[in-house]
Simulated scan of single mutants.
Amino acid sequence: MTATATTAAPTATGMRLRLHDIRIDYGGGAVIDGLDLEIAAGEILVLVGKSGCGKSTLLRAIAGLRAPSAGRILADDAPVAGPSADRALVFQDDALLPWRTARRNIELALSLRGIARAQRRATALRWVREIGLEGFADYLPRDLSGGMRQRVQLARSLAGSPRAVLMDEPFGALDTQTRATMQRLLIDTWRAHPTTIVFVTHDLDEALLLGDRIAVIGGGAVRDLVEVPAPRTPLDRAALKAELLEKL
């Protein structure tokens, strides 16, 4: 993320994540086997790899939705034993509740935190403004475009002040222009509300735009870790993309 910033990065308030000797079985075999990975508090780590290599499965394990068959996942030195409001998961499908308005979808994360109703409404409306949807707070998801729905999902994920946000190809179904807008919104929102982000994508250009580091997943483990320097020029990006293509 630092590569796209124009001012100093914010103080990290995110969660440190450590994965040690992780094995995850799926379909009669191990999709992840012997994986080790450390994610620093406040960094944006992007996971890339071929389809079926286990990126999404790994993300769900970090979220606490799937227990590893072996190994340990630590969140700030505490074992991950299940889902937590401190680890928010963002899907490609916006997963909004269709009967709740945009504002009330955002309020859901605040409700889970035990925030009082009056404060929930005020905070949700602030997030509506922050994601550029002022005037759409009372719209149902069916009345919003795909990009608008993803804005609401992003706001809902961040409104509860998680210390880690786990994003599973959240912009993959969007058109090119909307995707670029959402990438910029993510950068701007991260700068205003710093947290740890683990981001899964198949798009290497997206990985190079967003990531501080890129983890190449293959053969059940982290095949390589690529540092993304800042600032980065178009020539830097082209060279890194060629390097990543070779590693994949």
Rank of each mutant, 00 (worst) to 15 (best):
G114E: 00
I115R: 05
G114M: 02
L133N: 03
L158R: 02
R223L: 00
D76Q: 06
V198S: 02
T189K: 09
T7K: 13
L96Y: 00
V128N: 05
W99P: 02
L208D: 00
K247N: 05
G211N: 01
L209K: 11
G114I: 03
F171Y: 10
D77W: 09
A81N: 15
V152P: 04
Y26S: 09
Q183Y: 07
G132D: 08
I24V: 07
T101H: 04
C53V: 08
V46Y: 04
L133C: 02
H20M: 08
N105S: 09
D25F: 06
T13P: 11
R72E: 15
T11N: 15
F91R: 04
S56G: 15
A5N: 11
D143K: 13
R100K: 03
D168H: 07
A12P: 03
A63P: 01
G64M: 05
T176P: 02
G172N: 05
A9P: 09
L74S: 01
P194V: 15
P10N: 15
D188S: 08
L166P: 04
A5K: 07
W190C: 06
L37A: 02
L209M: 12
D93I: 03
L59T: 08
T176I: 10
A109W: 00
H202R: 15
W99T: 10
E38F: 03
R151M: 09
K247P: 01
D205T: 12
V226K: 03
P79Y: 05
R117G: 01
L244Y: 05
Q119T: 15
G82Y: 08
L133E: 09
V128C: 11
L58C: 14
I73S: 04
D86F: 04
A8T: 15
A40D: 08
P141L: 13
L112M: 06
S56N: 10
A63L: 08
H202W: 04
L240M: 14
A75I: 03
A63H: 05
A137R: 04
G52Q: 02
S111K: 01
L248A: 11
K241Y: 06
F91M: 06
D203H: 11
A207E: 04
T233F: 11
E243W: 12
L185Q: 13
G64R: 10
C53S: 10
A124K: 10
S157M: 04
A180W: 01
D205Y: 14
A180H: 03
V200E: 08
K50H: 14
L19T: 07
A238P: 02
G220M: 06
M15G: 03
V200D: 08
V90M: 12
P231C: 14
S111N: 09
L140E: 02
